[in-house]
């Protein structure tokens, strides 16, 4: 499979790329783990019962999976130890740091907005279960 023609880049010879370096394997593992965690978050977002519990899935799964996938791809692209390579690594670290800071903050803002809007949390008490969740359309 070669997608390099899309960027007009020279096509790399397949036989050169046949074996993976250790960095690339590390990066692939990290990205795969990130995808796994994102699967958990997506399924949670799909089937949790109410707004607050969905927030749990979204707020946490989002942070860690983006973090792992970005770090994984940073390792995959980081093959030469030039100044530009380090700069790229630093930039990706910047994105990771930014997501780590902002994701809980926006989760918290949404949570507060929902709470003050009067969405009732679902509890295990069967009486309140009927009212909770889909109160406001």
């Amino acid at each position: 499979m070669s997608f390099l023609f899309l960027a007009n880049a020279p096509v790399v010879d397949e036989s050169v790329q046949a074996e993976l370096s250790r960095l690339e394997i590390c990066g692939m593992t990290l990205a795969g783990l990130g995808l796994l965690f994102f699967l958990g978050a997506a399924v949670g977002l799909f089937r949790f019962p109410d707004f607050y519990t969905r927030m749990h899935a979204a707020g946490k799964g989002d942070t860690l999976s983006s973090l792992l996938i970005l770090l994984g791809f940073a390792l995959i692209t980081f093959d030469d130890f030039s100044a530009l390579g380090w700069l790229l690594l630093l930039k990706i670290f910047g994105i990771v740091l930014f997501i780590m800071l902002t994701s809980p903050t926006s989760t918290h803002a949404l949570m507060r907005a929902g709470f003050e809007d009067g969405i009732e949390p679902v509890t295990n008490n069967p009486k309140r279960k009927k009212k909770g969740g889909a109160k406001k359309k």
């Binding site: 977002l45 707004f51 969905r54 927030m55 949404l110 809007d117 969405i119 109160k135």
Partner: peptide, 11 residues
């Protein structure tokens, strides 16, 4: 069901 659900998903 609520607009906040949508917003979380968009985020």
């Amino acid at each position: 069901p609520t607009s906040f659900d949508r917003l979380v998903a968009v985020n």
